[in-house]
Amino acid sequence: MNYWLFKSEPNKWSWDQQKAKGEEGEEWDGVRNYQARNFMRTMKVGDRGFFYHSNIGKEVVGIVEVCAPAHPDSTTDDPRWECVDIKAVCDVPKPVTLADVKAEERLSDMALVTSMRLSVQPVKPEEWDLVCRMGGLDPEKL
């Protein structure tokens, strides 16, 4: 399994809206960055990710799962753009802020710190475990 981080401005698409989509999930559309698109192309159904509120809050608030592989983005007719569908898995009991991540030396190379503008980014397994634990989750039970 691979791990990811999905950024969304909560005033545009919030964690509560994501959870409301239930098992069906929602298309992670509107991404217009080639690197982020390429990451989505490599995703597999069952991969897990952090749902991160950007700009407002700046914190990991939930865990999501990829529930549909890369497919054409329905918000454009341009065939270059693809996206995956994700569904909510669970809340992060204690949201992990960007400040928390930056304060943790073991996360200094995390893409959230080094590639802050990228809306879809990979998360290394050791980063996944640590951020889950910081948020009050046991990564072994997810």
Results as ranks from 00 to 15, higher is better:
A20G: 10
V123C: 15
W13M: 13
V89C: 04
A20F: 05
A111C: 14
L98A: 13
G57D: 05
A99I: 10
I56S: 11
K21F: 00
M110L: 14
D100I: 07
H53Y: 09
A70S: 15
R41P: 02
Y3Q: 11
W28C: 11
Y3T: 11
K58W: 00
H53L: 09
A111S: 15
E82Y: 09
S8H: 08
R48M: 13
W81G: 02
V45R: 05
L112D: 11
H71M: 02
K124I: 02
T114M: 06
N38S: 13
E26P: 00
V60D: 06
D85S: 13
Q18C: 10
A68N: 01
A70F: 01
G57P: 05
N33Y: 04
E23I: 03
D109T: 12
I63P: 08
E9P: 09
D109K: 15
T97I: 14
G25H: 01
N55P: 00
R32P: 04
F39W: 13
E126G: 04
T114F: 00
A70M: 02
T97D: 14
W13R: 13
Q35L: 12
A88C: 06
R41C: 12
H53R: 08
E59G: 01
C83H: 01
F6I: 14
G30D: 02
P79Y: 00
R32Y: 06
K87H: 03
